[in-house]
Simulated assay, not measured.
Amino acid sequence: MPGPTFASLAEAREAVAAVVGCESEPTARPIVNPDLAGFTAEYAVCGSRVQIEWFSSSDARADAAQVYMDTSQPLAIVEGENWIVADLSLALEENWSGKDLDKVAQEIGGTYTVLNGFKQA
């Protein structure tokens, strides 16, 4: 999996914020919690509809990524070695978040994937 490995959730969020801008402190709670499926991750948000997930291992990240791949909801995600950034705007039936995850993938690395008809406005 391309992209950097981050040492912490804070480091991953800082890298994402440097590309697409996030408030200095998260103002919303995590949106989707893969802990319910038995995965362990730490979560932060960027804006109100983009979730950053940090995993202690690439195996845990791969398991969580599969949850996203199996969904029928429109999503955009960026995957790195031990992190995922997911734009859940359209899955929440809201307008696009305005956060360009393709740019995140290009600037900090990672694999950008659009699922189930996700479209940036």
Rank of each mutant, 00 (worst) to 15 (best):
K99T: 02
G47E: 03
V19H: 06
D102R: 12
D63A: 13
G109V: 12
P26M: 09
P2F: 03
E25T: 14
G3E: 07
D102N: 13
E93C: 08
T5N: 05
V20M: 05
N82I: 10
F118R: 10
T71C: 05
W96T: 02
D70T: 12
S56H: 12
G109A: 12
A10D: 13
P26Y: 03
G3Y: 04
A10C: 00
E107S: 10
L101C: 10
A121V: 08
M69Y: 13
A18R: 11
G117A: 10
S48C: 05
I31F: 07
V67F: 10
V50R: 00
I31M: 07
K99F: 07
A12W: 00
G3H: 05
A76E: 15
V114P: 00
R49I: 01
R13L: 07
L36W: 11
M69W: 10
D59R: 15
N95M: 08
Q66S: 09
L90S: 03
L9I: 06
K119A: 12
T113R: 12
A86C: 13
G38W: 09
A121K: 06
G21P: 04
A91L: 05
F39D: 11
S58R: 15
S56T: 14
K119M: 09
G109D: 11
D59A: 15
E11G: 03
N95W: 06
Q73H: 08
V19R: 06
Y68R: 10
A44V: 04
G21I: 06
V32G: 00
A65N: 12
L75W: 04
M69E: 12
G110S: 11
A7I: 05
E23Y: 04
L90K: 14
E53G: 06
Q106A: 13
Q106E: 14
S48H: 06
